[in-house]
Amino acid sequence: MSTNVADYVRTTLVRRGRWGIGEIVFWLIAAATLYFLPERHLILNEIAIIGLFALSLDLILGYAGIVSLGHAAFFGLGAYTAGILARDGIADPLLGLGAAAIAAAILGFVTSFLVLRGSDLTKLMVTLGVALVLGEIANQASWLTGGADGLQGITMGPILGLFEFDIFGTTAYAYSLTVTFLLFIVARRIVVSPYGLSLRSIRDNPLKARAVGIPVNHRLVAVYTLAAAYAGVAGALLAQTTQFVSLDVLAFHRSADVMLVLVIGGVGYLYGGLIGAIVFKVLQDVISAWTPQYWQFWIGLILVIIVLVGRERLTERVRVLWKGAAGRTAKSPETLQKTSAREV
């Protein structure tokens, strides 16, 4: 009996772990933009970074159910870590990336114990508080961070000693996309593992999860730390590819934006963050070209409408389409986004 269940779970997980055609097409298109959209690499680079950042939020929000309004804390810490290292002469990008991941993971590990307790509101406030404290520190410690002027004088060395960053952002985009892709594979592997399954059961019913013997707190600490490391890497990518860090990376609107990105794309499946990042950036680009100063209004309006129409209903429909696409007809992801945009 129990082996039957174990077998069933194993086969289900293996089936879920298989790559669908839709997914492969998605990444092929992403890789193809390296050659076909050379004049858009700067914005594509931002999309890849925001996508990674949203992916990290999805790990804790979509898979573990932790509501966070202060995810920018890890993003900002990663950005400052990478930026300060580069300013002080350690110009190797990968080294900076690793250092940023470790710094953010340590902060994530320490603060994860704060979000284990209390209601959603408490978690919200605590995460927000952590981000604000970090923002204050970055503001006050201007000898280290440059304070309100931002961190200047970052010069990056070539990646792996081979690829120099260029002004068109092509190297930067290739770099960000590769890192995002690799981390995506890791995250994908994690969420289809038994560990990922246990996270989902914690999200759906923490009490029951505890009752069937899942060590809830350990799991949450682990995933929070992991997500923090991911966000740190995203921040480091931003710092390295734009060669500038300002207090903006720790600001509240960054935490709010990433949540919005994730919500647009859909919470609880890994492509949500990536698709959301594409839609969000394109929207932002279009709207701010149209009303440069007031694009926030329309973003807010979209948010309100998404919530009123029903977040789950929208993403559920996209997910069904996605499954259909991945399973049978192999539609390209581009058509999927148009569908979701029309339904918004």
């Binding site: 929000l61 509501v67 309004l69 209601s119 959603d120 509101l121 919200l124 709010a256 949540m259 919005l260 919500v263 919470v267 100063q293 007031y294 694009w295 926030q296 209004f297 973003i299 807010g300 309006l301 979209i302 948010l303 309100v304 998404i306 919530v307 009123l308 977040r311």
Partner: peptide, 26 residues
């Protein structure tokens, strides 16, 4: 939205804040 999850409420009210900020700015 009273019966919705806290996440929905947070998103909704953040959306309202963004709109209010931009509208007053305008």
């Amino acid at each position: 939205l009273y019966t919705r999850s806290h996440l929905d409420q947070v998103l909704f009210s953040i959306g309202l804040v963004f709109m209010a900020v931009a509208a007053v700015d305008y």
